[in-house]
C-alpha cells in the first residue's frame, strides 16, 4: 500500500499535464482490466466486468492531477514568475522547492514586503532556479512545475505532496486488483483537471453515461486546526453528505453507510463548507447521475506536505471493494 502511494505521489502531474502519471497508472493496471483508453481531455478510462442482471453501470473517479505552477514570465535577472494551476495557497510557498517537468529544480521566495504578518499574493512570489539572466534560464513561459517534496513514512501515517489525490488513485488501483466478482460494469476513471474545476470528470461523465457515480478524493480535517470540523484523521474514511458544490444523493449516502456497518468498517460522515470533488460534475451530467463521494481524511490539504492515516486508507479500500462487489440497492432512509 505505502509503496504504491509513494510511487504515485512522486510523479509530477499538474492539471492539464497528466501524461507521466497516466502512463505509470496505465502500466500498473494493464494486467487487471479488459481495456484502457484515453479520451480527448486526457482521462484514463478502464473497464472492469460487465453488467449482470440487477447490476449497474458505475463510474468511479479519482483525479490524477495535482496543483501546480505555470511560468508566466522570466525576468531579465533570471527570476521566474508564475501563476497557479488549481488552489495553490501563498502561505505554503516561501522557502519551498519545486521541480519542473523538464527536471529543472528551483526554490520559491517573494518580493520584499514591509508588512511581515500579511501574506502576499502569488504574483509577488518567484522561483529562483539559479540562473543569472533571462538568456541563461532553462525554463520558459508556459513551463509547468509541482512541489518538490519526498514521501515520508511516519509509520501509521504518511506525508507527501500530491496525496490529493494520488491516494485516491492508489485506492482505485488496489480496488481494480481486488474486485473479483461484481455484478456491475465498473468504469474506473483516472480524471484530469479536477483541481481547476472537475473538467476531466465533466467530459468523462458525459461519455460514459453511467447509472451511478462515486468520486474518491481527500477531505480536509479539523482535528488539530482549532476549527470546528467533524472529520478527524484516523477515524475511518468519510462518507460525503455534502460539500460546497455537491449534495450527495441521499440514497447513495445511505447505501455507503449501510455497507460500512455491515462490513464493520469505521467511518465518518462529512459535511464540508470548502471545496468539492468530481462527484459534482457527475451529478449534473446529461439527465443527472445519482452520485456520492468517499473521502480519505487528510491534514494540510494543498500544502507540499499533506498527511493521511494508513488505517483510514485500508478501511476505505475494504469499504470500496465491498461496495462494488455486491448488488447495489439505492433507497432513501
Amino acid at each position: 500500500m505505502k509503496e504504491l502511494i509513494k510511487q504515485l505521489t512522486q510523479i509530477p502531474g499538474p492539471s492539464g499535464y497528466e501524461s507521466a502519471i497516466r502512463e505509470t497508472i496505465r502500466e500498473i493496471i494493464k494486467p487487471y482490466v479488459r481495456e484502457t483508453r484515453v479520451d480527448a481531455m486526457g482521462n484514463l478510462i478502464a473497464q472492469v466486468g460487465t453488467k449482470a442482471p440487477g447490476g449497474m453501470r458505475v463510474m468511479v473517479a479519482a483525479h490524477m492531477d495535482e496543483i501546480g505552477l505555470i511560468v508566466s514570465h522570466i525576468e531579465k535577472k533570471g527570476l521566474v514568475r508564475f501563476s497557479n494551476l488549481g488552489g495553490v495557497l501563498p502561505r505554503y510557498l516561501a522557502g519551498g522547492r519545486v521541480v519542473f517537468l523538464n527536471g529543472t529544480r528551483g526554490v520559491i521566495n517573494s518580493d520584499r514586503h514591509d508588512e511581515v504578518s500579511k501574506i502576499q499574493p502569488i504574483s509577488q512570489f518567484f522561483i529562483d532556479i539559479g540562473a543569472i539572466s533571462e538568456k541563461d534560464c532553462p525554463v520558459k513561459i508556459g513551463d509547468l512545475a509541482v512541489f518538490d517534496r519526498e514521501f515520508l513514512d511516519l509509520g501509521k501515517r504518511v506525508s507527501s505532496k500530491a496525496l490529493d489525490d494520488r491516494c485516491g488513485c492508489a485506492l482505485m488501483i488496489e480496488t481494480i486488483q481486488r474486485v473479483k466478482q461484481s455484478p456491475h460494469e465498473l468504469l474506473f476513471v483516472f480524471c484530469t483537471q479536477e483541481e481547476v474545476g472537475s473538467r476531466g470528470a465533466t467530459t468523462a461523465a458525459y461519455q460514459l453515461d453511467a447509472d451511478l457515480g462515486i468520486a474518491l478524493d481527500v477531505t480536509p480535517v479539523g482535528d488539530i486546526l482549532g476549527v470546528k470540523m467533524q472529520v478527524n484523521l484516523g477515524e475511518g474514511p468519510a462518507i460525503k453528505v455534502r460539500d460546497v458544490g455537491h449534495i450527495a444523493d441521499p440514497a447513495v449516502v445511505n447505501w455507503m453507510v449501510r455497507t460500512a456497518r455491515e462490513l464493520k468498517v469505521p467511518h465518518q460522515l462529512e459535511v464540508l463548507d470548502v471545496g468539492s470533488t468530481d462527484a459534482r460534475a457527475m451529478q449534473i451530467s446529461r439527465g443527472g447521475m445519482p452520485s456520492g463521494a468517499l473521502s480519505i481524511p487528510c491534514r494540510y490539504v494543498h500544502s507540499p506536505s499533506e498527511m493521511i492515516d494508513m488505517d483510514d486508507y485500508a478501511h476505505a479500500l475494504t469499504l470500496l471493494t465491498g461496495l462494488l462487489s455486491r448488488e447495489i440497492k439505492l433507497e432513501k432512509k
Binding site: 479520451d39 481531455m41 508566466s72 514570465h73 465533466t202 461519455q207
Partner: peptide, 22 residues
C-alpha cells in the same frame, strides 16, 4: 504567449462540451 493567469475566453465552455473538445 499570453501570460497564464485569470480571465478567459469561449474556450472555457467549448472544451468541456460533450466528451471534450481539444
Amino acid at each position: 504567449f499570453r501570460q497564464p493567469g485569470g480571465g478567459g475566453t469561449d474556450a472555457g465552455a467549448i472544451h468541456i462540451t460533450r466528451g471534450g473538445v481539444p
